[in-house]
Amino acid sequence: MKRSNEPIFWSLFGAGGMLAALIGPALVFITGIAVPFGFVFSPDTMSYAHMLAFSQSWAGKVFVLAVIALFLWHAAHRIHILLHDFGVHAVTAVRVLCYGGAFAGTVIAAYTLLMIKA
């Protein structure tokens, strides 16, 4: 029997799923509802200056990358399984599409964060 390479994708899936389960609802509420529509938080919470300063700190960079990349890898793994569940058997194409997408997103996020200098 051939050892499966699933552990790589499953670990990223698990990390992303755990992060989403723990703080996902709060993040969506803040970035998508409360701040844009101006309640609970001050309207400039996500202003350019604030977000730039946040992304200039290493802690901020790590956090932003973790959220975007792990959410993408989590989703990629599940969508990959979902397509298999729906009977899509183009295994290689599905893999390239899902994991390739997550990889591209990760690279774009990491590159952008590196380019944001203090």
């Binding site: 029997m1 051939k2 499966s4």
Partner: peptide
């Protein structure tokens, strides 16, 4: 676990 660690083993479960 040679079987367990394969795609046909634990990893076939979703």
């Amino acid at each position: 676990n040679e079987l367990g660690y394969a795609d046909e083993g634990y990893w076939g479960c979703t």
